[in-house]
Design a protein around this nucleic acid. Sequence first.
DNA 1: CGCCAGGACGCCC
DNA 2: GGGCGTCATGGC
Length: 270
Amino acid sequence: MDYKVKGRDIIVSEPDLDLDETLDCGQAFRWKKMPSDYDCTYTGRFVNTPLTVSQTGKGSFIFHDTTEEEFLTRWVDYFDLNTDYSEFKRCFSEDETLSKACAYAGGIRLLRQDSWECLISFIISQNNNIPRIKGIIDRLCENNGGDFPDAEVLSRETPDTLAYLRSGFRAKYLCDAASRVSSGETDLSAIAAAPIEEARAELKKILGVGPKVAECVLLFGMHRTEAFPIDVWIKRVLAEYYPGGFPEFAAANAGIAQQYLFHYIRTGLK
DNA sequence: CGCCAGGACGCCC
DNA sequence: GGGCGTCATGGC
């Protein structure tokens, strides 16, 4: 990754990043595609820090109206720009299906998201589809001045007061998560640092958090790249291409491989 | 109308 | 331990 400051913008060059593939592949739900004179422009937030970012060509980007310090301390980390994704793709190319998935959408990166926001987002995601997940999260933030509500704010709600979300049976799960995190009963930063099995078990104590949601929180909210969420799409990939199991050589970064496969099977094979 | 969606829970055996 | 009905909501 290279960058230079130009006025109030940061001009970034990173060959292994594509905004459409990274911001609209089902790992994050708060980025909105805007009308744009560039290839594409997205606006969104990391926790409460807003950003508008454009892709101006293959591997070239403008991070609008941000300082060098904010870029280096926040956005480099969020977009995982200090990690060399070509190394992952070279490793994955040993497997035929993974190789095709990487060729199809080589600009996917694993965003380093906030663990609390991930927990809530993926509780909402269960037995749900991506457009409706985005709608529920939109209403949740809209009701909080545009910011994602923290655990203490959300812990003051009840399933009844959350009716405006139209999140259905998931509302009681959100309340339980908020109550546990705001009281300290669930310590997300401790879970992020814990051995993986211990972390899984601790997350699954939250009502509405089962194996799939726990893996998503570990992968997307805690950057545990060995976590491997299995939803209906990945089930199809495993059944069709990996009947003998997922390749061992990719296990340490199975979650990153999973992102390429998820996007590939959902949009690349139609 | 029925089927599906980045599933989990409660109950049954 | 595995199997199955149920849980809201909305798009197709």
